[in-house]
Design a protein around this nucleic acid. Structure first.
Lengths: 199, 199
DNA sequence: ACCGTTTCGATGCGCTTGCATCGGATCGTA
DNA sequence: TACGATCCGATGCAAGCGCATCGAAACGGT
């Protein structure tokens, strides 16, 4: 057998490089050559790790979603009162809004993929699945908070979850345009959640 | 003097063609050749109408924003009670959310340009100016509605306007993903506005 | 120690892109 | 009617793209 290299590690390394490129120059700014150069590998290596560019991009998207999920769970675990559904809800949504440099890059990449999903059904499917999972989680949190008396009893968890997610995405866009500061976005989110509270 | 052709009309014609292409295939799917073919003119004509592709795209964006503005004003004028700030507010926001085929195309193009603006400061400037104008209008409507007693007195017009715009943009994204129906989006918007009403 | 097998990095290819260029058609003028 | 200035549409061009291909290098089995 010939020597083995760490394929999975290389995939991650390339994915990170592509992520950076997309965050800086957008989706069409991420070429195979640039990705290879940024990752410090040859172009052939990129081709061997991913059968096609589309697969590479899908991997990058999945990898980013995984990172966001990890950060959300981390934020929930590190919160003062992890058991409270309301706290978990706030951390979940706050984990999506970019509050610092790295997550701003995430938001940029998210927007780039979102634009692609709007015209490419294949890409839309991936995004939609992610959103369905997120909406389920948020709806569950809202329902739990409602049942425990933290939020008003007349809110519909599913509808409210979708509305909250929409608001979060919209805040992301405003942030990327530079019309919002991260603090203002977080404040808007907080304000919205506060309006759900039971009196 | 040689014969004159309708330059401005041709610009509009090409802009409409580019708009359709972007709505169908995204920003990078709009090439000069395809634009010329779709508009039914030669490629040279496109080059003479717009000095560069960037200028053409900026014109397309401006043209679309103008169309949206026109539709909003039209909706306000056609509403049952044009004088009511609350009605105007609802029509303004509803004019942004895509409720039918043509405005879905608008939303697609909007998202495409939004993604570009996230990585291109030049494009971000254009978008930001548009949003500032929209935010001013919405804030004014909210303030008017508040002062006339239609909405609760404890809402901050500027903050609320930004939040409403963010929600609208988020709904647009969800719509494009196919997670929302236009009716559900409109319902969510209505629900949110209803929550602002004075009891 | 040798060789077959497998993986590596580099180069080539066909294609498309935005933009520049050029001959020919067009119209006012004398 | 002949001319010259002007504008039109088609073609050319250099660059960049994704992907295919290829010789060389690196191992394990015998």
């Amino acid at each position: 057998m010939p020597r083995q290299v760490d394929h999975e590690g290389r995939r991650l390394r390339i994915a990170r490089a592509v992520f950076d490129l997309v965050a800086e120059r957008g989706l069409e700014g991420a070429t195979l050559r640039d990705a290879a150069a940024r990752a410090g590998v040859s172009m052939g290596a990129v081709q061997r790790c991913f059968s096609t560019k589309e697969e590479m991009m899908a991997f990058v998207l999945e990898h980013m979603n995984q990172r966001v999920t990890d950060r959300i769970e981390e934020g929930i675990a590190a919160s003062a009162d992890p058991g409270s559904a309301m706290t978990m809800l706030e951390h979940t949504l706050a984990g999506i809004v970019p509050l610092d440099g790295p997550s701003t890059a995430e938001a940029r990449v998210w927007l780039a993929f979102a634009a692609q999903a709007a015209v490419d059904p294949r890409s839309a499917g991936l995004q939609r699945r992610q959103y369905d999972r997120l909406a389920e989680l948020v709806a569950l949190l809202v329902r739990t908070a409602r049942d425990s008396g933290d939020v008003r009893s007349d809110v519909d968890p599913e509808r409210e979850a979708d509305a909250l997610i929409a608001l979060t995405d919209g805040l992301n866009v405003q942030l990327l345009f530079g019309r919002f500061t991260p603090e203002a976005a977080r404040e808007a989110l907080r304000h919205r959640l506060h309006a759900l509270r039971a009196d």
